[in-house]
Nucleic acid binder design. Structure first.
Lengths: 226, 226
DNA sequence: TTTAAAGTATGACAAATATCATATTTTTAT
DNA sequence: ATAAAAATATGATATTTGTCATACTTTAAA
């Protein structure tokens, strides 16, 4: 059982507000998991009874819509916590969490987190601020979905991916999504997504090499994203 | 200065978790305002420095999108609090709040609310749960926007309005929105909204009488909303 | 009250997007 | 290594949605 105190990613989440004692306690009760690419950490409707701290790998949070398509609501990075909202709401998960890459995650039971939450004001305040930030993002995201065209949303999403998840050495987006997943992020049909990517490729704003996508002209892309 | 203790709407928000003493204190530092239909309570980007408690009347929370249209993100009822999120995030308001009817609201300064928040665990827990509920709703709303057609969203919205804000004696929706506002809720052009309303009217799922909208066949409407 | 302005309604058309079909490429499993 | 399956790509076409024009109706202001 590794020590939470030495975990590099802890500085990126509310966990950084925990005391040494609390970190030791957490290390004792946590469970570590390896999740393979494509596997779920938890599914919509499940009672998770705790939170997952992402040590390595990125996952998508999805919701199955009425028409049977998976909408990707957000992507989550190492350091972030999963399942905070449903823990506080005392509800089953509203979204599924599925690994986009091989992942390492630690599960911390609800009882433990809630104790920290109640006794450590800095921790609870940080957690609250995170959730408030999520709410702002969700509202903004909703407005984008409602008001922007598919092309604008695609441009916006590509920039988001580069800004938040970085590039490989060859300049391509580090996060590799399938066309279907990318379509699921922007809320469109897979074919429409592919078509618009081709278009951006032809006009040399991006380049495509199999699953690799590189942004060539970020300024123009930003202008398209309106 | 009226007493918060006697305010009927306080049971509908986190304020119900305050003690008698806290309520007295709040009554002393609050400011009451009358807001006329169409007037803003606060605007996107403003620093509100406190929260507003809605005593009477309904307001819309809107965000100006890049294309210049106002998207209605949510509607807020008496009893609910405005500006909680930005207070906790310590950020300017992300959304504007505009009265849909004549309103009575009370402003409570941030300093006071944060004191309650830090000393009264029940209050802070309730506030957090409210925000978590908002986050779930926002995520769900986003998926609707991304995956549903305009017609589905219109049907969904009409049902939402009836379920959450009720009907007048004549059966029409109590909340009267202009066509432009309704379009702003579902994220479409005003003309498209009008056209689809006419269509629903012709097929007798709803009836239109000026600004009054009545749902005639809720079951069919629900089926359309998918 | 009359006039202007705003809101509602509808047609005609254009643009955006989805759907279906099919070909090609890549990945996966045997 | 090879076959099968999945993912990507693209054309053809239908449907949805937006835009512009214009008429009518209601509301608000002078």
């Amino acid at each position: 059982m590794s020590k939470c105190e030495q975990c590099i990613v802890r500085q990126f989440s509310s966990i950084k507000a925990l005391t040494k004692d609390e970190l030791l306690r957490m290390a004792e009760c946590k469970t570590s998991y390896t999740i393979k690419k494509g596997e779920p950490i938890f599914e919509e409707g499940e009672s998770t009874n705790g939170v997952y701290c992402i040590k390595d790998g990125v996952c998508k949070m999805t919701k199955l819509s009425a028409n049977g398509k998976d909408q990707i609501v957000k992507l989550v990075k190492p350091g972030e916590l999963l399942g905070q909202r449903s823990m506080i709401s005392e509800e089953p998960a509203n979204l599924s969490a599925v690994a986009l890459e091989d992942m390492e995650v630690c599960f911390v039971p609800k009882s433990e987190i809630m104790q920290f939450f109640n006794q450590n004001n800095q921790f609870s305040m940080h957690l609250m601020k995170t959730i408030c930030g999520d709410l702002k993002e969700a509202d903004d995201h909703m407005v984008s979905m409602a008001q922007k065209s598919v092309k604008e949303r695609l441009a916006e999403t590509l920039i988001y991916l580069e800004d938040n998840f970085g590039k490989n050495d060859d300049g391509s987006l580090r996060i590799q999504l399938s066309r279907e997943e990318l379509a699921g992020m922007i809320g469109t049909a897979t074919e429409s997504c592919i078509r618009l990517l081709s278009e951006l490729n032809k006009s040399e704003l991006i380049s495509l090499d199999g699953k690799k996508i590189s942004i060539l002209d970020k300024a123009k892309l930003k202008r398209i994203s309106a």
